[in-house]
């Protein structure tokens, strides 16, 4: 152990000398008492009394655990475990099977234009309801059955007119079918030309639990990107883009269980609208049942308050 042969350097001599002093007896006794105390604690230490192989087994377990984790990570990275990427056909099929969906659509005429918002609710059986500006449009089986004006802004613009045209296309394209069709939905977009087959775009996915598909015209002057969830295969966003003009249509999709039939009924809507005439705010969402049971309109809040205040019947 003592392998320091030449302590001739003055620094070395001084350092040694600095430690050369004898410890005073009282200090030594006090420190020995601490060491005795420590020895007692070590004896009482529970796992110290276990056989030595315990530690080795523990290390082995840790090693095996890390090994398994490494294999799992390798398999996940190779796509052997976990959901494989959904195909386009699976996304289309899953969308068609959704009981009810809503789409918030933002239409922009050019890159710096304010977007016009269109809201669409659709249920199985070809029933749909749309809001464009201050108009609520009800459709069924490919036809507009009634347009109900809402109070509020009535200003019109070219974009809004275009959006109205778009809506009619939606109604025709979507409502004619008994079930939803993502491809029909896309065909209702103002696309000129033939679209390519959807191709997965790995660079466009937001995270590993999403997948993105790109569809474009042969000249790439118009394209569509669809983001879908990897597990459920449901599409959650659709973006249509015309690079030449900056015109775009951005669709955010969400899904829920069926809405009550009166939600798609223009007569029920008009009756509810009459009942809640003082409440112009939120009138567009009358009769909508939030999946979480939250109030959506001022009428919902009032109803909740009334039912809370009503005395219980014995």
């Amino acid at each position: 152990m003592n392998t320091n042969p030449e302590p001739e350097d003055p620094v070395e001599i001084m350092v040694k000398k600095a430690f050369d002093e004898e410890t005073p007896a009282d200090v030594r006794q006090a420190m020995q008492a601490h060491l005795r105390q420590f020895r007692t604690r070590i004896q009482a230490r529970e796992y110290i009394q276990r056989p030595r192989w315990y530690s080795q087994r523990f290390l082995a377990r840790i090693t095996v655990g890390f090994g398994v984790a490494a294999i799992v990570m390798l398999c996940v990275s190779l796509g052997l475990i976990g959901s494989p990427a959904p195909t386009w056909a699976e996304v289309v099929e899953r969308f068609a099977g959704a009981p009810c969906f809503s789409a918030t659509i933002y239409v922009k005429e050019h890159a710096t234009a304010d977007p016009v918002q269109v809201e669409l609710w659709m249920a199985q059986g070809g029933k749909l309801r749309l809001r464009v500006g201050n108009q609520m449009i009800f459709g069924e089986k490919g036809k507009v059955i009634e347009t109900v004006p809402l109070t509020g802004s009535s200003e019109s613009s070219n974009v809004r007119k275009n959006a109205r045209l778009l809506v009619e296309q939606y109604v025709e394209a979507l409502g004619a079918l008994d079930s939803f069709s993502l491809e029909t939905f896309m065909k209702s977009l103002p696309i000129n030309g033939v679209l390519s087959s959807p191709l997965e775009n790995e660079n466009a996915r937001v995270s590993d639990d999403m997948v993105a598909f790109d569809i474009s015209t042969p000249d790439n002057e118009q394209w569509i990107r669809i983001w879908a969830l990897r597990e459920s295969r449901l599409p959650v966003r659709l973006l249509f883009w015309i690079p030449g003009s900056g015109e775009s249509i951005d669709v955010v999709l969400s899904y829920f269980e069926n809405q009550p039939s009166e939600f798609f009924d223009p007569n029920a809507f008009k009756a509810a609208l009459e009942y809640t005439m003082p409440d112009t705010a939120g009138a567009a969402y009358l009769l909508f049942k939030d999946p979480g049971g939250r109030p959506i309109t001022p009428a919902d809040v009032r109803e909740m308050k009334q039912s809370a205040a009503a005395p219980e019947k014995s």
Binding site: F19, E21, T23, D26, V27, R28, A30, M31
Partner: peptide, 17 residues
């Protein structure tokens, strides 16, 4: 040696303990 080492550095009863 532990006691000696610690005392060698601290040179103070309180600090050494």
């Amino acid at each position: 040696r532990m006691i000696r080492l610690i005392w060698g550095v601290t040179k103070n009863a309180e600090d050494a303990e």
